[in-house]
Design a protein around this nucleic acid. Structure first.
Lengths: 163, 163
DNA sequence: CCTTCCCGGTTGACGTGTCAATGATGCTAA
DNA sequence: TTAGCATCATTGACACGTCAACCGGGAAGG
């Protein structure tokens, strides 16, 4: 393997062919992986990854209810996205929204029994899918490396110009 | 490298808390990364990642034209997705579709001058973004590991039950 | 010849995501 | 007091993806 130090590529602006190949491999593979995990979830549970994220956060919340903006922060979504998604989930009876008693203008989202039940049914097969398609695909070293890479990428992203 | 045989973890069905943490980190980070790369592309070039993939394939094609199904295979899209996307790109004047002379049933997609021009303008800043947000975030070892991980995941996916 | 099936491509319906604009409500400062 | 002003949430318009249905034209087999 070629040794490429930061120094060695000082003047260079563009990725090498090899770096580009890795980028494409990486992106395409992670997209294929998440799409496969998502479609398994859908088939097994009739829940989308978004549904699952919302239900997970609500399940872990005090009283199975949360302020909408707290929920958005928890799962890292924009409020608009969450609002649209909650509308769809409410139509399907997975959650309910009600005016918050304490804070005016604050909407509270709460898990319905049907939502809790759907989440319960989804969890076990979903975790098994993650194990099968992700954990089992990698050696322990690779798994550790994946964690390190994620951390490095995230830190680098966080320090960038446009957050 | 630790030897982890299927036997060693035979009884366990579900990922450990640590494995799950890595999974979530990994997925969330790669999603944040691709979304950031995509939004930079959009801002710099008014092209979506999908547009870019189509234009790239067409640019490299003989005569800057391709059969629609060949294009779909090249970039790994379903025919339906490509058809919808080509419709949007055609409306914007980036590509054109015409009946294929040789093969009766075949539609040909071809790059318009405006499409070629848009691709040209997009490429350099896009590659620089990949370098800045991906390549520069990782050490050479991590970059290599990212390639290995992608390969391992892809191979594992390919051998799975539902492709 | 006619039926049947497949194949390449399109379409419609619908779920999902983003952006920009809008309401509704408190906080602050003239 | 009231004129901004920020914040929380929703909405509408539109791009994007998937799924299932559909269409037109060979090829295959009776």
């Amino acid at each position: 393997m070629v040794e490429t130090t930061p120094e060695r590529r000082g003047g260079r602006q563009l990725p090498t062919a090899e770096e580009l190949r890795i980028w494409r491999d990486f992106v395409e593979t992670t997209e294929a992986l998440t799409s496969r995990v998502g479609s398994r979830l859908q088939v097994d549970s009739s829940l989308s990854p978004g549904d699952y994220a919302v239900l997970l956060a609500l399940s872990e919340a005090q009283d199975r209810r949360m302020r909408s903006s707290a929920l958005a922060a928890q799962i890292g979504w924009e409020r608009s996205r969450l609002s649209h998604h909650l509308g769809r989930m409410e139509r399907r009876g997975l959650i309910r929204r009600e005016e918050c008693a304490t804070v005016p203008r604050g909407a509270e989202v709460l898990l319905t029994p049907a939502g809790a039940e759907a989440f319960q049914r989804a969890t076990y097969p979903h975790l098994r899918t993650i194990r099968e398609l992700f954990v089992d695909a990698l050696t322990p070293d690779q798994l550790r490396a994946a964690g390190d890479i994620a951390r490095a990428l995230r830190e680098h992203l966080g320090s960038g110009a446009d957050e």
